[in-house]
Each structure stands twice: as C-alpha cells, then as structure tokens.
C-alpha cells in the first residue's frame, strides 16, 4: 500500500499491467522520455524500454488506428491521447473500427485496446484541453467508457479496462489528478466495469455523477448535510452504466439529480433520465433535475467557472428537487 493521487494511480496501474502481461504496450505523444505531460507514464520507459513504452509521431488518428491494428494482432495497446479534445481527431478510427471489429469479423477478431486521456475543465488550460466527451463515445456502439473519480478506483478500473476484451475509452479527471490522495494497493487488482459506487449513503435524494464532479458534489452535499441527506452515486462506468444501482437508490429516495460537466443536450444525463423515466417513473416523487454544462463550447479560463457546475448550482439544484 502507498498513498497515491490519481496520476500516480494511473502510473501504478500501467506498471502493473506492463509487468503482468507482455502483450501490453503503452503508446502516445510524449509518453516515453518525457513520461507524459502530466507524468502519468513517468519512469515507465526506463523500466520497460522504448518498444513497450512508445513515443509516437504526432497523430491521434494514427495512434488510435495503429492501436486497432496492434489489438487485432494480439497486443494490448494502452494509448494516451494527450488531452481529451484531441480524441476528436481519433474519432474515426475508434468509431468506424475499434467498436466494430468484433462484430464485423463475426467474433473472429477483437479489439482490446484502451485509450486513456485527461478530461474535463477547471484547470485554466487552452481551448480543447478540457472536453468531456463521454457522450460521444457512449453513443458509439461497441465501445465502453470509464470515468474514475478516486485514486483507488482509477487503478482498479484502469486494470479492469486493460483486461477487458473490448475497446475502452478511459477518461481521467484532470482537475482532481492531484487533489485526492488515498491508500492504493501496489499489486494488481481490478474494480469491475459497469458497477457504480455509492460514494455517500443518504435517504432524501439520489445524486448521480462521475469524474471530477464527484468530488465537488460531495463537497456541496457536505455543506447542506444538516438539512438534506443526499445519496451520491459515482457512476464510474458510463457505458455500460449501472442502471440497477440508480433505480435502487431512487426507490429509496424518490428524487433524482444528475450532475455532469458536458453540455446538457444529449449529455449522458439525458440517458440516465430516460432510463429512470422508463423503468422507474412510479418511484419518483419529483421531476428529475439535471445540473450540467451549457450547450456552448467550454469558455476560456476567464469564464470557465461560470460554465462548470459549481457548489452554488449543485445546492440550488438539490434544493429544487427537494422543494417539489
């Protein structure tokens, strides 16, 4: 056991995976000599050599497409896309190929790749460095989407993603990369995909969120704990998502708030909301409330705090669902 933050947990997971499985290859821009711009791959090339921890040319489409080929031919590529906005450049290979190889080959081939990327705003960075693209990929058939929020889960979910037989997009919460520290086992362990985590038990209202928003939701909920006893569900996996855990909680509380950073329209909150309406309308004693980013591009740093759901908006949203 060692105390780690989220970046260190990523590093530790990659190290375990590279040690445990000779077919694992880490690749991406600046991941080798430099150890990644956030140091997520720091020191790995020294240990495992430049053939397993590979600095690539600058091409996200290239990185994704080459990973597809590697994965089909027996490797387990774990690609880093330097910032989430550059996933857009890789989109074609991921959507047109990674998610389709298994079904297109009638199960003869598979594409067990992992694409990890720092994601989300609140870090005062340049444009396209802060996107939350979970919905794009949740919407892409054949691809799993994971979004951890703690160091322990980061390592366990990343190792589960690498073990997974299908392609996984792994969205790391940049804003809290170094904000949370906790004990993380040094050895290999997996946190299963598709299972949510109850981050805080409660009985008055169910809040579903993921990634960096989990921390800020917990902080906000703490502020109003004397008045409202909220249950916070950390979704952990966006696709396939744990609708059972959400419905069970809503059964208890009768109220649902969904919080995410990405734009509201067709954001993943809409899917959760639709699912609960379809399967649990009778459980609800108030309309569902979504607290999200707006249908705009994420503003540059001077205004980004106006966009990302903050404590005031989270509390207001919870109060709204409680007041109904």
């Amino acid at each position: 056991m060692a105390v780690m933050n989220i970046v260190q947990a990523v590093n530790s997971a990659l190290k375990c995976a590279l040690e445990e499985d000779k077919s694992v290859v880490v690749l991406g821009e600046d991941v080798g000599v430099n150890g990644g711009v956030f140091r997520a791959t720091d020191g790995l090339q020294k240990i495992f050599g430049p053939k397993r921890v590979v600095d690539t040319p600058l091409s996200e489409l290239g990185i994704a497409g080459v990973s597809v080929g590697m994965a089909v031919n027996g490797l387990k590529p774990v690609a880093e896309i330097q910032f989430s906005g550059f996933l857009y450049a890789a989109f074609d290979q991921l959507v047109s190929h990674a998610g389709r190889i298994r079904t297109r080959s009638r199960g003869r081939f598979s594409c067990p790749l992992v694409v990890r990327t720092p994601s989300g705003g609140g870090i005062r960075a340049l444009e396209l460095h802060c996107e939350m693209p979970e919905s794009f990929f949740a919407h892409a058939p054949g691809i799993k989407v994971v979004c951890p929020s703690t160091p322990y889960d980061t390592k366990g979910l990343l190792l589960a993603s690498i073990k997974d037989p299908d392609p996984v997009i792994f969205l790391e919460p940049t804003r809290i990369y170094r904000a949370i520290k906790e004990e993380v086992p040094d050895n290999f362990y997996a946190v299963p995909l598709g299972k949510a985590r109850i981050a805080k038990q409660g009985k008055d209202v169910t809040i579903v969120t993921w990634g960096a928003m989990v921390k800020y939701t917990l902080d906000a909920v703490e502020k109003i704990k004397n008045d409202i006893d909220a249950e916070v569900i950390d979704l952990r996996t966006i696709y396939p998502f744990d609708s059972k855990a959400i419905l069970e909680s809503v059964k208890k509380t009768g109220r649902l708030v969904i919080i995410h950073e990405a734009p509201r329209t067709a954001g993943f909150g809409a899917e959760i909301s639709a699912t609960v309406s379809e399967k649990g309308l009778d459980l609800l004693s108030a309309p569902i409330v979504r607290i999200t980013g707006y249908d705009t591009t994420l503003p540059f740093p001077k205004l980004e705090k106006e966009y990302i759901p903050d404590e005031a908006r989270i509390i207001a949203g919870i109060k709204k669902v409680m007041a109904y």
């Binding site: 509201r264 707006y294 249908d295 705009t296 591009t297 001077k302 205004l303 106006e306 966009y307």
Partner: peptide
C-alpha cells in the same frame, strides 16, 4: 473590463436557438 458573465453564449449561433435561449 472583465467579459460579461454570459459572454460565451453570444457567438454560438447567429440566432440563439430556443433551446439554448432557455439555458441562457
């Protein structure tokens, strides 16, 4: 002067669609 807080809504479209207007 600091930008207006809602500055980032202004140039998304020539005309703000109803849906975005609601959010605004």
């Amino acid at each position: 002067e600091p930008p207006a807080k809602d500055d980032f809504f202004k140039f998304m479209f020539k005309e703000m669609p109803e849906q975005l207007k609601e959010q605004h």
